[in-house]
Amino acid sequence: MRPRNIGDVILDVKNISLSFGGVKALQNISFDVKEHEVRAIIGPNGAGKSSMLNCINGVYHPQEGEIVYQGEVRRDMDTHHAAESGIGRTFQNLALFKGMSVLDNIMTGRNLKMKTGILAQALHLGPARAEELREREFVEHVIDFLEIQAYRKTPVGRMPYGLQKRVDLGRALAAQPKVLLLDEPMAGMNMEEKQDMCRFVLDINDEFGTTIVLIEHDMGVVMDISDRVVVLDYGRKIGDGTPEVVRNDPEVIKAYLGVGH
């Protein structure tokens, strides 16, 4: 068992409701995320998991409720502000620049840390150059961490899916997030790739102390790596607690397996 060093609540979601027209995507959802923990959000298809992440990092603006992040209360924020305040994320369907190399893709994740202007960068002036070198070095650490040295110059579109997922994670890591939102990081992977990804997620959590919120369908993975689990179903929260508690919750079992009539 890994020794855990879980801190105070870093992200507190209170009574969030989100609807698109008549569709109620999220109804009165509340849960919290503590610093350094691995928090999983699970639920059947269409339960509102991705919508929840989208509310947290400002893609969607919930109609009701508030989110307290590092003591700051807000209903909504824009995505840029979310990224600046240390919320990073990866995407369910990957949103990489397919024609660009792994290095360049991860470098884009570093964009927030770059302060020089577009003109200086275009002309490759001294400060811009020094900055690029500095950031490149950080990106090299990410590449080393994710063990993708052999693909540094490979265009992302030519890489296998499992590795593209890793690059997506790399780009999120490049921004040095405090909280990392992972939207189905293991979807579509084979067993070996899943194991690798689990190892990376745990290593990120261990080495950098990054708080992790992940959506995942593979129950084995969820039960193995997460500290606490939130269960959503049709936009409602039906369970919350440690993997053991959630696993034995009759409501959750019903949502997942149905009930005999």
Binding site: H124, R129, L133, R134, R136, E137
Partner: peptide, 18 residues
């Protein structure tokens, strides 16, 4: 090339991990 050469020749204590 220019990038990398610079990335290379950059040395010393100001590059912490190195």
């Amino acid at each position: 090339y220019r990038m990398k050469a610079a990335y290379h020749t950059k040395g010393g204590a100001d590059v912490a991990p190195f």
